[in-house]
Design a binder for these strands. Structure first.
Lengths: 223, 223
DNA sequence: AGGATGCTTCGCCCGACGACGAACGATCGC
DNA sequence: GCGATCGTTCGTCGTCGGGCGAAGCATCCT
């Protein structure tokens, strides 16, 4: 019968609200301890433990024991890709005009997406880099290259210090689900987020994927 | 709480074996009547009907009434993308050394993947097109371009008759789950499959995604 | 050592959902 | 028109799986 890959089992793992919440929380690429994931998913510790065990069993999540904590993280970029491609499917239903809650507004302005930056600010930065021809134009899912690192924006973002290309494509377009346009992902996307964080231009908001944006950065890139 | 797209609901829809089987059956892009989908999923007609109603409700599948039949098809390319990205996740578990059943062998040689060609033959064709620089090199998920249509392989596949670029990228890399390398998808991928079918170089096998390959094509492209 | 903290296992309850048979519309063929 | 076919809706059953509290280990702190 099947010579086909089993679609149902990973989907089933993602199809439970508590597990989905955990996976989304891990989308920013960091590892979180079980207790925190339980709080995020709003379930008790035993329930969370059971869910996490199934996620590990299914190969979506990796566990790392550190002291008396167990840190969980996504098992790989392909898992993150799958989650994002499903999220891209979701908005068909609600078509919720966001801008409602304060968090939604913050998420729409700036947030992390796996290990890079997303939201309006991310689009502003990507547009500026494309405009000064520092990178090739972005297309959703497609990959591009770094063209030059001596433009004004490229200098401010320290593109010259970007990691040498490895397995990962340097420039990737990642479809932004609030703006429906691709923002900068890939190795360079991760590098830019790191630069912004260490320069204090953005800061993580605890318990959230949204990012606090400095005024300096906002006036420069908010569209 | 959420400013996040709802990951769980589409995943839940795909996470049920019967529904997953239906979705996979629709991956080749064609529309199938409810009865056939029921047979494929090995469930009774009422059960299939309920599943299909939920898939339509969730926006994954579109229904088209034709006579006394109702034909169902995937709602869009993004749905197919999500299904494929989940399938890519699945093989983590079994690591089944295929080549077991006859169908698995046939699927590994040539099959349809949504609306284009997949399997060893597809990789052979893609490699040949890249080698003669008819298209840009493929990368999984990335998109490329048509470079020239006058090479020997490009002529045989009538690349010059490929549809003008529309919303869809002309060349896309689609990760082949049997070979773990990207094969040719996108508008050109669909065009090539059409050419091969109408020339009789491949033929659909009823009730299956595998394709019968003519000897002529096999000696030319089987790696 | 002893208590606190973090996570897991166990046992149980309950609701949700998938499965089917039977009955009901709708459409086609003749 | 009349049976035949296709698909749906309805009612019912069984089970799978998610939820929690209590108890059990492990690790850390002092």
């Amino acid at each position: 019968m099947d010579g086909d890959a089993d679609l149902a089992s990973p989907a089933r793992l993602m199809g439970e609200p508590a597990r989905a919440a955990m996976l989304v929380a891990l989308l920013d690429g960091r590892a979180l301890p079980a207790g925190e994931l339980a709080a995020i998913a709003r379930v008790s510790a035993p329930t969370a433990s059971a869910h996490l065990a199934r996620l590990v069993e299914g190969g979506l999540v990796r566990a790392r024991a550190l002291g008396r904590h167990r840190y969980f993280e996504l098992a790989g970029a392909d898992v993150a890709d799958a989650i994002e491609s499903l999220q891209r499917l979701a908005p068909r239903r609600p078509v919720t005009s966001y801008g409602q809650s304060a968090t939604a507004r913050r998420l729409a302005e700036a947030r992390t997406c796996y290990d890079h930056l997303a939201g309006r600010i991310a689009l502003g930065i990507a547009d500026a880099l494309v405009a000064e021809e520092a990178i090739t134009p972005l297309e959703a899912g497609g990959s591009g290259m770094i063209l030059a690192t001596d433009g004004p924006v490229a200098r401010r973002l320290r593109l010259e210090a970007a990691p040498a290309p490895g397995r990962r494509p340097p420039v990737r377009g990642c479809l932004d689900w609030t703006e429906r346009r691709p923002h900068l992902a890939g190795a360079l996307g991760a590098h830019v987020l790191e630069v912004l964080l260490s320069a204090g231009w953005v800061a993580r908001v605890p318990g959230d994927r949204s990012l606090r944006v400095s005024d300096e950065l906002r006036v420069a890139f908010e569209s």
